[in-house]
Simulated scan of single mutants.
Amino acid sequence: MTTVRHRTAPAPFGCRWCGVQAGNHGRRYASSHGMHTWERPTNNQIKARMRARRANRKEPTP
């Protein structure tokens, strides 16, 4: 199972490494991966992000 490690879950199709959407990405730095360009998230990441966003809509945290 994939864990979403952001305070708010990124968009399901945000970058695999940092969560930023392709149109706004360019080259970015992520401590887990270093400098990178946008990369499609894995199917497990997409599913985990969708579940996290759905759970947040049901039970928003302060």
Rank of each mutant, 00 (worst) to 15 (best):
Thr37Leu: 11
Gly19Val: 05
Met50Arg: 00
His33Asp: 03
Arg54Tyr: 05
Gly19Arg: 10
His25Ala: 02
Gln45Leu: 10
Cys18Val: 11
Ala48Asp: 00
Arg27Tyr: 10
Met50Asn: 00
Thr37Gln: 13
Gln45His: 07
Arg40Ile: 13
Val20Glu: 01
His36Val: 04
Gly19Phe: 04
Arg53His: 03
Cys15Glu: 02
Met35Gln: 13
Ala52Asp: 14
Gly34Leu: 11
Gly34Lys: 15
His36Ile: 05
Met50Trp: 02
Gln45Gly: 02
Arg28Gly: 05
Asn44His: 10
Ile46Ala: 03
Cys15Met: 09
Arg57Trp: 05
Cys18Phe: 08
Cys15Ile: 07
Cys15Ser: 03
Ser31Ala: 09
Gly23Trp: 08
Trp38Asp: 00
Ala30Trp: 10
Gln21Asn: 04
Ala30Pro: 12
Arg51Thr: 04
Asn44Pro: 03
Trp17Asn: 11
Trp17Ala: 01
Asn43Ile: 12
Ile46Asn: 00
His33Pro: 06
Asn24His: 05
Thr37Glu: 13
Ile46Tyr: 04
Ala52Thr: 12
Arg40Ser: 00
Asn24Ser: 03
Ser31Asn: 10
Cys18Gln: 09
Lys47Trp: 00
Arg27Cys: 11
Arg49Asp: 01
Gly23Lys: 09
Asn44Gly: 08
Cys15Asp: 01
Arg54Thr: 11
Trp38Glu: 01
Arg28Trp: 13
His33Cys: 01
Thr37Tyr: 12
Arg16Leu: 14
Ala30Phe: 05
Trp17Met: 04
Met35Lys: 14
Arg28Tyr: 07
Arg28Ala: 01
Trp17Phe: 13
Gly26Thr: 06
Met50Ala: 02
Arg27His: 08
Ala55Pro: 07
Arg54Trp: 09
Ala30Arg: 14
Ser32Trp: 06
Gly19Glu: 02
His36Phe: 03
Ser32Thr: 13
His33Leu: 01
Arg57Val: 08
Glu39Tyr: 09
Arg49Val: 12
Asn43Phe: 07
Gln21Lys: 14
Gly23Glu: 11
Ala48Asn: 00
Arg57Pro: 05
Glu39Gly: 07
Ser32Asn: 11
Met50Phe: 05
Thr42Asn: 07
Pro41His: 08
Asn44Tyr: 09
Asn43Pro: 03
Met35Arg: 13
Val20Arg: 04
Pro41Thr: 14
Arg57Ser: 05
Gln21Asp: 00
Ala55Tyr: 08
Gln45Lys: 08
Val20Ile: 13
Tyr29Cys: 03
Arg40Glu: 00
Arg27Gly: 03
Arg49Thr: 03
Ser32Pro: 03
Ser31Ile: 08
Arg28Met: 10
Ile46Asp: 00
Asn56Tyr: 12
Arg27Lys: 12
Tyr29Arg: 13
Arg53Ser: 11
Asn56Thr: 12
Ala30Ile: 11
Arg49Lys: 02
Arg51Val: 12
Arg16Tyr: 11
Thr42Ser: 15
Trp17Arg: 10
Arg16Glu: 10
Ile46Phe: 09
Gln21His: 06
Pro41Ala: 08
Asn24Gly: 00
Met50Gly: 01
Asn43Val: 09
Gly26Ile: 09
Ala48Gln: 00
Glu39Arg: 15
Gln21Cys: 07
Gly34Trp: 08
Gly23Ala: 14
His33Phe: 05
Arg16Pro: 07
